[in-house]
């Protein structure tokens, strides 16, 4: 088993005096190296093309899966996202679902197009979620899990650091989790219950930076959702809620 989490480079957000204007800083590993907010730019994508294609298995189709806003109240959107990809046995032949957080809508891109597009913020397929950043795309996204932090209690001040999608080491060897999935910024969002064969969201909230720098807080409510917000759906059906926290400078 690989245990390479510690090798994942981080991107730190150094909060300025203005809670709504956090600045971005880059870091590689534990030796944080802060940079000014002015350097916040979209990334170049991956340098591990073959390894990325192996890991993601891009499908040359646009997802037609349902992404539906269940509610939009007081700045908090609740979304249903069908990321079943046709079920576990068909997933490899069906594309990822790309989401734009500002609108709560699906972005119609093939997987290959998404690698080069800044127009999406999050991608979903089965239990794997990633941001538009680093090896996943040219966006300036990122995420970090705030373990145990309740959604309502999260403010921009809690977002002291974010990770970008760093899927490979310098030799393009993938960082994998226990089940062989690429370790994304949303890695370990769930616990697996062997006795029920179900995945359950861990308690806490994700800080998510969109492709263009918008900062959000996001809670995964269930992996077994329905489009009315229920929890009795098939696996791969997310219900998430999220809210805008602030805008990062370009």
């Amino acid at each position: 088993m690989r245990s390479l989490l510690a090798l994942l480079p981080l991107v730190l957000l150094a909060c300025s005096g203005d809670d709504n204007q956090p600045s971005a800083a880059a870091d590689a590993g534990s030796d944080a190296e802060e940079t000014s907010a002015d350097t916040f730019e979209a990334g170049p994508g991956t340098s591990c093309t073959s390894a990325r294609d192996t890991a993601v298995a891009p499908v040359d189709k646009v997802s037609t899966s349902v992404v539906k806003i269940i509610s939009d109240e007081a700045g908090v959107k609740t979304l249903f996202i069908d990321a079943t990809a046709g079920g576990s046995s068909s997933a490899k032949s069906n594309p990822w679902v790309y989401l734009k957080l500002s609108t709560g809508t699906r972005v119609d891109l093939t997987d290959k197009q998404a690698f080069d597009s800044p127009d999406w913020d999050l991608a979903f397929k089965r239990p794997v979620i990633h941001t538009n950043s680093g090896d996943a795309g040219p966006g300036g996204g990122g995420a970090r899990f705030l373990a145990g932090k309740a959604f309502d209690a999260v403010t921009v001040a809690d977002v002291t650091s974010l990770k970008v999608e760093t899927w490979f080491d310098a030799e393009c060897q993938p960082f994998l989790d226990a089940i062989g999935s690429i370790k994304t910024t949303f890695d370990s969002w769930y616990t697996y219950e062997a006795s029920t064969s179900k995945v359950m969201p861990k308690a806490g909230t994700f800080a998510v930076r969109g492709a263009t720098g918008d900062l959000y807080k996001l809670e995964i409510q269930t992996y077994y959702g329905t489009d009315t917000g229920g929890t009795t759906g098939a696996s791969g059906n997310y219900v998430i809620k999220y809210a805008y926290l602030g805008k990062l400078p370009k």
Binding site: T54, A55, S88, K92, P174, A178, I179, G180, S181, I182
Partner: peptide, 11 residues
Amino acid sequence: RPIDTPPAGVT
């Protein structure tokens, strides 16, 4: 696919 890089999923 490289032989030492199986698809995701223990199944």
